[in-house]
């Protein structure tokens, strides 16, 4: 068996080990590299920056705990930016597996950093079943869909919600999504109520969202950890995403190497087989 044939049949666990090592090395030997800013991330930053101080913004935690590594840095960066601009944040989630818990944890943590008060500067509406119904229903009345917040306090008892009745009172929506809920924010909320939406999506979702960027239904886009890193740079709060990009670099290079290696092996083996057959 030739070298290339052996490589073709290489136990997959060696590949796993190589990936594991490639992720670990940058944490031990960090080598920061400059990260450029895409126009999509810059547009999102500019849209938030252009909001008048104290605007009401919906920050939507539409992601599962499975994609925390990509979405949490976006959520944290968004909170930094919005709280810094004294925006009033209304959070909610359409995800029944952990969405409201993550919204509660992150927003509270960030609010504490900026000395913001619950009920006055931010509110967590929590979760309700059926995202198309929730998004559609909030257009007429948020309170009819969310009679109480995530911890059961009636909305009528929260001062912030006195001035927020429906989408007319929302200046901007910052949607963080790892699934198709983002499509419905576009097709229901943006299309029918005209609220501008900026999206922080997982890398898997990002290619699709370029269609909404082009049509102007999203004002900006952060794609995965890289998008989060760009936003961290833009708001000057470099954290986990920027740090993570070093490991990302090495693993991508490893995978590209594996693809090239696999193809060289494929062509060498195939030409040998052809020669053998001839």
């Amino acid at each position: 068996m030739s070298f290339w044939e052996r490589m073709e049949k290489l136990d997959r666990r060696w590949v796993y080990l190589a990936v594991g090592i490639a992720v670990i090395i940058p944490f031990i030997l960090p080598t920061p590299l400059p990260i450029s800013i895409t126009t999509e991330a810059q547009s999102l930053f500019d849209a938030v920056e252009a909001l008048p101080d104290g605007s009401n913004v919906m920050l939507v935690y539409d992601y599962y705990p499975s994609t925390i590594a990509e979405c949490e840095p976006i959520a944290i960066a968004a909170c930094h930016h919005l709280f810094r601009k004294n925006c009033k944040i209304i959070t909610l989630s359409n995800i029944p597996y952990g969405g409201p818990s993550m919204a509660e944890k992150i927003t509270r943590m960030m609010a504490d950093q900026y000395g913001k008060t619950y009920g006055v500067d931010y509110v967590n509406l929590g979760y309700k079943y059926g995202y198309v119904a929730v998004l559609s229903g909030m257009g007429q009345s948020i309170e009819s869909i969310f009679p109480a917040d995530n911890s059961g306090t009636l909305l009528s008892e929260l001062p912030l919600m006195d001035s927020v009745k429906n989408y007319e009172d929302i200046a901007f929506i910052f949607e963080i999504a790892d699934n198709a809920t983002a499509d419905y924010w576009v097709s229901i909320v943006n299309a029918q109520y005209g609220v501008p939406i900026g999206c922080g999506g997982t890398a898997v979702m990002a290619p699709k969202f370029y269609a909404y960027i082009s049509s102007g239904q999203f004002v900006g886009l952060l794609g995965g950890m890289r998008g989060a890193a760009e936003y961290e740079i833009l708001i000057n709060k470099q954290a986990d995403a920027v740090k993570g990009m070093q490991a990302q670099s090495l693993v991508h290079l490893l995978i590209i190497g594996l693809v090239i290696f696999g193809n060289v092996g494929f062509f060498v083996t195939r030409s040998k087989q052809k020669r053998g057959a001839a």
């Binding site: 590949v15 190589a18 705990p65 925390i68 597996y97 818990s101 693993v251 696999g262």
Partner: peptide
């Protein structure tokens, strides 16, 4: 939450292996 994150993190290994094979 950490278990759900880990479950999906294992996909990185599979995608690397798939790229190679």
């Amino acid at each position: 939450s950490p278990m759900m994150s880990t479950m999906f993190a294992t996909l990185a290994f599979y995608i690397a292996s798939a790229a190679h094979r």
